[in-house]
Amino acid sequence: MGQTRVERLRSPGSVLPPAAPPRKGLLARIWGELRREEARTGWLFLLPAMVYFAIFTGFPLAYGFWVSLQEWNMMSPRMTFIGADNYLALLDDPTFRECLANTTYFTVGIVICVIVFSFLLAVLLNQKIRNMTLFRGIFYSPAVTSVVAISVVWLWILDPEYGFINQLLRAVDVIGPRWLADSNWALPGLIMTAAWRNIGYFAVVFLAGLQGIDQMYYEAASIDGANWWGRFRHITVPMLMPTTFFVLVMTIILSFQVFALVYVMTGGGPGGATSVIVFYLYKQAFVYFRMGYASAVGYVLFVIIFALTLIQFRFLGKAAEV
């Protein structure tokens, strides 16, 4: 029905509005659609997933917001509705602000490391050399290893006395920082660990982007006399914009959710220097049992990540147009 109406409207000859089709009620339309076998089967196939997401994503999302408006310690069955008080308390919470600052510091560090080194690694992997898949496999391997395992190994690498880095530094007569034991160096230590885990992964993403660039552009530019820098600047960089955007958003989102690394390596210390948002959320919820407050933290995190994604969409959308 809908199609014939559209066709009639589009036909240039028709000046008069077409006769309105007999209006049918919503239920009648749904019934009509469901008489089609394809639609019926379609909804039947979707049904399990829809029920599942309603229970395990939709409901938690709504209920989490409801809990964030309550004061509740989970042990007692009684919740007290306190409106936006949890959110207002968050604004005044110096520890939360510190967590936010730590998370931002961590994220900026990771983003810089990942964008620079993953890109360079991808360029390296894009060279025509035999056994390149072997190297790709080696560089990617940290991404397959669990954060917990990597954290334990890096505890030794960053050990102030016996760790690999400081022993190397001592060999050239430099006294290395105390890393995770020093509140100024703990976050850089975590950044190094997380960067080591993620650079290979994002290098493979960049590599896919590099290999998606049509060789024709490079050939044409070479014929026009462009040197490697010109080709890089005017072909690789702009053509890689969508990939860079994807990597940027993914890295920020992943860094804002960092948890296991902090839990295993520092436990938020020393003196809260590595306490990040999700770690704070965990402690509020499952150590102090302040469920309402923790839910509010979760919602703030949700809004931050959502906003970051939107800002980057707009910003890079414009950059890509230019």
């Binding site: 997401f53 229970i55 938690p60 999302l61 209920y63 809990v67 469920m291 979760g298 949700f302």
Partner: peptide, 17 residues
């Protein structure tokens, strides 16, 4: 759209569930 929801946000209510 559910991919944009950080898992940590739904974790507390999921635990209550």
């Amino acid at each position: 759209g559910t991919m944009m929801i950080p898992t940590q946000v739904t974790m507390i209510p999921q635990f209550i569930l």
